[in-house]
Design a protein around this nucleic acid. Structure first.
Length: 444
RNA sequence: GUGGUUGUAGCUCAAUCGGUUAGAGCGCCGGACUGUGGCUCCGGAGGUUGCGGGUUCGAUCCCCGUCAGCCACCCCA
């Protein structure tokens, strides 16, 4: 039996890594477009950071151990507690609102399933120090724009949006006691799922009136703002921030992505306002992204009273959705040019030429052993590279190099002495090459 | 953590009722091809049938266990 990666952990072969890089690229590009700055923290934290405040659910699934100094430590399962600590440490010196993003690798010890591993990368975007609904719209818009940047539309992904303040208002309007609100949230969370009746019974057993629970069930029918006004007129006023957030998203032209869905609760105990999730439209996968407002968390962890909100977007479900929707990045060749020497006496010329071109920021491969030219061309072709430079006795005597275009099936001589400037007109240097790997023929 | 289900080559899959040395395509390596790639043809490597045990003259096939994948719970990122 060959050794394998631990369950729930991944090996990234180059084609897998290409997808990961594609996702990271979109994450960074869009976050920067919103003026967010990248930061990071340690992957290993004190266990106490997680046991403290951020929801007991997570703690049972931590990777924890005692380090050699006797400290109880944990691999980070989420980024928000670290963020709270880091921000709190310099809260007075940071200009608000703070716009930060990070791409941490996170760990959870849990049985894996599709879309849920023990390790994943997650884009975290957080906006700290802004209490108003335009901040909520900003964060949600960023998440939507990541989808758009990856080639997904509103028919591929949906934002499901709710607000705990509004939900609280609805529960008060119904008359459900404050102490029963967590149970009521669970009932809403389970709507349409197998355990729904069990949770409903639990709420009744805890003292909720049957009539109240029935009315609570109307919440799941609310799809547009008018539904809310009709069903719970008394709660509309506490829903104002959510209404303004939706209006802002509509003004941005992103309204078509957004569904009002008050059954979105989210497990983490620290959310205080807006909560939202992104799903694939067919809803065959797990949530792509989840987030919301957590106005009390920074105070609880770092003693700094700042409103905040943010989201986490994992790479696993997102990658599956990109595969499903067939919006994967094109496979690009790893090199711009292949250099082929005709026989072993050409090696030193090949090495000199290759290195000169690498210094000019070309990505270069050449044959590492003594191989016939046909072999080298076959290798170049397999690499997906379009251009080959051939160096042999003939070229050396005339002070030239042969530039062979595998795509156009043509070749011509260019002067060896001015090789870089001669090439620049034909082959743009370096990693900006856009020639697809299977592409010379399909590329034009 | 609970229940169900599936494990054959790097990948996708075969293998009659339990019966000889577990096959094929793709991929990989080599040759035809010593200054011209893709195509073609030929050859090769690669498997303790996830692992362990049991039943049997004989197990990829049946039984048990275990590990891993998947699905549903659970929980959420």
């Amino acid at each position: 039996m060959q050794p394998k990666a631990l369950p729930g952990f991944r090996d990234f072969y180059p084609e897998d890594f290409a997808l990961r890089a594609h996702i990271f690229d979109a994450w960074r590009t869009v976050a920067r477009r919103y003026g967010f700055e990248e930061w990071d923290g340690p992957p290993l934290e004190s266990l106490e950071l997680y046991t403290q405040k951020s929801g007991e659910e997570i703690v049972g699934q931590l990777y924890t151990f005692i380090d050699k100094g006797g400290r109880e430590v944990a691999l980070r399962p989420e980024m928000t507690p670290t963020l709270a600590r880091v921000v709190a440490a310099r809260a007075n010196g940071l200009k608000k609102p703070i716009r930060w993003f990070s791409i941490p690798q996170l760990f959870r010890y849990e049985r894996q399933q599709r879309g849920r591993l023990r390790e994943h990368f997650q884009l975290n975007c957080d906006l700290i120090g802004e209490p108003g609904p335009l901040g909520d719209a900003e964060i949600i818009a960023l998440a939507i724009d990541v989808m758009r940047a990856l080639g997904l539309s509103s028919s591929d992904v949906r934002v499901r949006l709710s607000d705990r303040r509004l939900l609280g208002g609805i529960l008060r309007e119904i008359g459900i006691a404050e102490a029963l609100h967590p149970l009521a949230y669970q009932v809403l969370d389970k709507v349409g799922r197998s355990d729904y009746l069990g949770r409903r019974q639990a709420l009744c057993d805890a003292g909720a009136l049957e009539a109240h629970v029935s009315r609570l069930e109307q919440v799941r029918e609310i799809r547009v703002w008018a539904d809310l006004e009709a069903a719970f007129p008394g709660a509309v006023s506490v829903g104002q921030p959510l209404a303004e957030t939706i209006a802002a998203l509509t003004a941005m032209g992103l309204g078509e992505f957004v569904d009002l869905d008050l059954t979105i609760v989210r497990g983490l105990a620290y959310y205080t306002g807006t909560v939202f999730e992104l799903f694939d439209a067919a809803k065959t996968l797990r949530a792509i992204c989840g987030g919301g407002r957590y106005d009390n968390l920074l105070n609880a962890i770092g003693g700094t009273d700042l409103p905040a909100l943010g989201f986490g977007m994992g790479d696993v479900v997102l990658g599956e959705l990109l595969r499903d929707r067939r919006v994967l990045p094109p496979l690009l060749p790893a090199i711009d040019l292949f250099v082929a020497g005709v026989d072993p006496t050409d090696f030193s010329d090949v090495l000199a030429l290759a290195h000169e071109l690498r210094d000019a920021n070309y990505r270069i491969e050449y044959g590492l052993g003594s191989q016939p030219l046909g072999k080298l061309l076959k290798l170049a072709d397999a690499r997906g590279v379009r251009f080959v430079l051939v160096l042999g006795e003939t070229e050396r005597q005339s002070g030239q190099v042969m530039l062979k275009d595998l795509g156009a099936k043509s070749q011509h001589m260019i002067p060896r002495s001015a090789i870089v400037s001669a090439l620049a007109r034909v082959v743009p240097p370096a990693a900006r090459s856009l020639v697809p790997v299977h592409g010379p023929s399909s590329h034009g």
